[in-house]
Design a protein around this nucleic acid. Structure first.
Lengths: 238, 238
DNA sequence: TAGTGGTCTAGACCACTGT
DNA sequence: CAGTGGTCTAGACCACTAG
């Protein structure tokens, strides 16, 4: 174990070690990591101590343990923005996506700050419509770090997957681990009304998302908009 | 330990036991519960097993452990509805409350269902305004189970506390432990505009809250409304 | 059956709190 | 100082999974 502050408890240092190995890509989502006994042998710690380290990462939703099989790096999390809406869904068809545009651009200063970019860094800017039962439901503007996502520029827009995070993983070896969503209510603009096929001047809900990889580096910033009359969200407070 | 399914792990039965004792009122929020050693002596379990039971209740946010002092039943949680808004707050003055009305009424059927009331059960219906810097910010309609909250009928409206949950605890010995908040966006009505002193026809955000005691019994249902242009909410997804 | 994680024991010693 | 929770050890045995 390299350069760990020995004032920290052993189980903490062990957890940090494993977390860093995941962030560095040594273990990827879906991989099985070493068993308890292997960690015990490798670090000379007691079983209870190793378990405590692993439990910490389970609580952080980085790891999943399966009785009899092993301990795995978590693969995906439920990132759907549709959690914030209830649509009059007739079928149970999954949402579709229609990519509208892709450009390599200089980011707005707000986006630059959110993604912690250096001056001159560019972003891949995507726009897409999300549809439920064929009806436009969300309009999305997506900004990705250029570095790490270059391969997205090679694909035809029409061949983009409906779900982007699995596609980032496949195509770019980039794994989204968590996100911060910020919601507010706005007036609809003529453009939004056209895209979402709204007649009246309904308010809309805007969701800004900053998404992070396992190393806690922000890699994607997006703004999604949907009609406010379909907005419905439940939180548990405790 | 009475009537616990012995097929369950010991630490589970112990956790259930303690949880039930809290729900029954044997231990109240703020109380210190027995120490590890006392549980070890009482149940003949090993230290690690007792710790596992206690850790489970800490994860559920029922207990708090303080090194050197003991293990305590959690006192309060951050229940403020202002989490959903950002007001142009000049001072850092805490929100005030202005009680508008109180009635003992037959609940609407929706409220009756939410609070799991029997036919004929009445509810205490309160309305109040919440103010920030003296400006109306939220209008609230609150429905409380009659049973358990009778003492609220004895108080002058003007002597109600700004924060209701501490008042429920003091006056009625009723402790709110968690809540489910459901948000949506609505058109404003003339009455809401009058109460919140809104000129234009702004949309509003409505928050419906169902609040539970330690025994997971719903005891309060309320609907709160505020201007949608002040709505702003952040969630972490993982 | 071998290997994994889950439960449980019975200690030791440390770190923090209040008196 | 006594009493609390926090860290850590070195085992045992059980329950689940896969080959």
């Amino acid at each position: 174990m390299k350069n760990r502050d020995s004032r920290l408890p052993l189980y903490q240092r062990l957890a940090d070690e494993i977390r860093d190995q995941i962030a560095s890509g040594k273990f990827k989502p879906g991989d099985r990591i070493p068993s308890e006994n292997e960690f015990i042998a490798q670090y000379g710690a007691a079983a209870g101590t190793v378990r405590q380290a692993l439990q910490e990462l389970v609580d952080e939703k980085i790891l999943e343990r399966v009785h009899g099989r092993g301990t795995f790096v978590k693969k995906a999390f439920d990132s759907t923005l549709f959690r914030f809406f209830r649509f009059n869904q007739n079928s149970n068809a999954p949402p579709e996506s229609r990519m509208l545009s892709r450009e390599l651009v200089t980011p707005a200063s707000y986006v630059q700050r959110q993604l912690k970019l250096n001056d001159g860094d560019k972003v891949i800017h995507l726009t897409r419509l999300r549809l439920i039962d064929g009806q436009p439901a969300l309009f999305e503007e997506i900004n990705l770090k250029h570095e790490g996502f270059e391969h997205l520029l090679d694909y035809e827009l029409s061949s983009f997957e409906d779900l982007l995070y699995p596609m980032y993983a496949e195509v770019c070896d980039q794994f989204i681990f968590r996100a911060e969503d910020t919601l507010c209510v706005e007036e609809s603009t003529p453009e939004i009304r056209r895209l979402l096929r709204i007649d009246e001047s309904l308010p809309i809900v805007a969701i800004e998302r900053l998404a992070f990889n396992f190393g806690s580096t922000p890699v994607e910033w997006r703004r999604s908009r949907g009609r406010a009359d379909y907005f419905k969200y439940r939180v548990d407070i405790r």
